[in-house]
Nucleic acid binder design. Structure first.
Length: 485
RNA sequence: GGGUCGCUAGCUCAAUGGUAGAGCUGCGGACUUUUAAUCCGUAGGUUCGGGGUUCGAGCCCCCGGCGACCCA
């Protein structure tokens, strides 16, 4: 660092700005690769260009120096500096003052070297941005912690990191385009809420000085998107961050991106079909195929129709006995004990059925599967099933062993919704800090008449995980990490 | 929340309880066709922090920090 600081000063002393405000750039590296890729070994194009790139490798051989320059998009080109082209002073300056990690400008002719490497043979070089810190060795992988803490370094030395960042952009853009083309409006709803709702989760709490009230970072946008549907915005979606004050592991981040979309006059079956089409479309547009190869070599086949199985039936089959919404909590608890599932006293019977599902059925699902018809006591925002008693019209979509999306026929009856939220508030009063609260303004909106609607939530980070096979911290550019020291 | 493993030079990693090391990076030198260039030379350390055991601790014990994985 001290040596590089001195080099920075030396550049200034020689009249070369280490951080010039403008450079006579004429081409991107990608453009040159495209335009001159046909050059044969030792060909000279006769065309002069000005390029910038970060020095990734440097090979100085006395009177002829080579450097590999990499642009932000990951494309690379070789720069060559020869004594007879740039002169003794410029060549000495290059050797003395340019380090790995520096961004440099090179003006010169596009050629192919004797070994056939596409190169810019410099007539002149300038510093574009002097790096004071050394780049980690480019041929050894950074530790996972270093990659996450210093993503800017990770992005420079590991093209795969940049690829994932770009894939995320493509996935989000694909979802947006597909929904927009289906007539959905993208709206923005509050992140700071006076009441949290729409999911079972512990919220982050903050405080408004101006209003002197506590505010919650949203755990879900659901209740506001539904208000929009009440108001006649019949197809709406939002892609943005939710915040949950809960555990952090390889599939959970305290802030995570979520797509929620609602459609009036659709039910959960129709929403399942739309969700499948959305994910298939995004897989095609972002990765080129509906059969995704993950980094560990395993395949996820997203093509065709996806299975729809019944939650209670699948659990019953796995256990070899009939489990229904009427099965007693005591019996469910003994089944959980037998499976080694530890049960919290606050858990309702439906929660125990879901646990049994995750333990006995989930590991057997490999291809994308919609699990249909959930217990009513864990789903306070979903309407009762039209024919099956004790369950609601809700599905969870499992892909690659993780919950990828959830969809409802929304509960729009304001009277029943009030009853359900009142039950939730009672649970909260008994110490369940994930239970929902009674949101009077939301109920007032429902009382104005919400059309029968379907709604879906899709985890963006999880979608990226399923399309790449990476953990959540690789799919989020700057995940939350504990401060150093 | 529980368990396991890890933390040593800028980076990636070694080191029976007995003088802290290698490769790459860096620095100095040679080299006009190199691809992680090569060759010669050289520098580089609060072994995550604190405490304990010991003649002696990177290593053993305790507490704490940070991370990874598994389980709930």
């Amino acid at each position: 660092m001290q040596i590089r600081r001195a080099k920075r000063q030396e550049l200034s002393d020689r009249g070369m700005d280490p951080y010039p405000v403008q450079l006579p750039i004429t081409h991107t590296i990608a453009t040159i690769r495209e335009k001159y890729g046909h050059l044969q070994a030792d060909d000279h194009s006769g065309d002069e260009v000005g390029i910038v790139g970060r020095v990734i490798f440097s090979r100085n051989t006395g009177k002829l120096c080579f450097a590999t320059l990499r642009a932000g998009d990951g494309t690379e080109i070789q720069a060559m500096l020869s004594l007879d082209k740039v002169g003794e002073q410029a060549l000495e300056g290059w050797k003395e003052l340019v380090d790995l990690g520096d961004q440099v400008f090179v003006r010169g002719e596009v050629i192919s070297s004797r070994r056939g490497e596409l190169s810019v043979l410099a007539d002149e070089w300038l510093m574009a941005a002097k790096a004071l810190r050394p780049l980690p060795v480019a041929h050894k992988p950074l530790s996972e912690e270093a990659r996450v803490r210093q993503r800017y370094v990770d992005l420079i030395v590991r093209p795969e990191a940049a690829r994932i960042a770009r894939l995320r952009v493509d996935v989000v853009a694909g979802l947006r385009q597909e929904l927009t083309s289906r007539g959905y409006l993208e709206i923005e709803t509050p992140m700071l809420q006076t009441q949290h709702g729409g999911a079972a989760a512990r919220p982050f709490v903050t405080h408004s000085n101006a209003l002197d009230i506590d505010l919650f970072l949203r755990i879900a946008p659901e209740l506001f998107l539904k208000r929009a549907v009440v108001g006649g915005l019949e197809r709406v979606f939002e892609i943005n961050r939710n915040f949950r004050n809960e555990g952090v592991d390889s599939s959970h981040s305290p802030e995570f991106a979520m797509l929620e979309f609602y459609q009036a006059f659709a039910d959960y079956q129709e929403m399942a079909t739309i969700t499948r089409e959305l994910i298939q479309e995004v897989a095609r547009s972002a990765t080129g195929s509906e059969i995704v190869t993950r980094t560990d070599g395993t395949l996820i086949d997203l093509s065709g129709e996806w299975n729809r199985i019944d939650l209670y039936e699948s659990v019953s089959t796995a256990l070899g006995e009939q489990i229904t919404p009427d099965t007693t909590r005591g019996h469910l608890e003994s089944l959980c004990d037998a499976a080694g599932i530890s049960v919290a006293p606050t858990w309702v019977p439906g929660k125990l059925v879901e646990e049994l599902f995750e333990h006995h059925v989930l590991p057997t699902l490999d291809n994308p599967t919609f699990v249909m018809d959930y217990p009513v006591d864990t789903s306070p925002l979903v309407r009762a099933h039209r024919t099956k008693p004790g369950v609601v019209e809700k599905w969870d979509l499992y892909v690659g062993g993780v919950e990828q999306a959830t969809g409802y026929s929304e509960l729009v009856d304001p009277v029943i919704q009030r009853e359900r939220l009142t039950e939730q508030a009672a649970l909260a009063a008994r110490g369940d800090d994930e239970a929902m609260r009674v949101d009077e303004d939301f109920l007032r909106a429902l009382e104005h008449g919400m059309p029968p609607s379907g709604g879906v939530g899709v985890g963006i980070d999880r979608l990226l995980m399923n399309l790449t096979g990476y953990g959540i911290r690789e799919t989020i550019l700057f995940p939350l990490v504990k401060p150093e020291r």
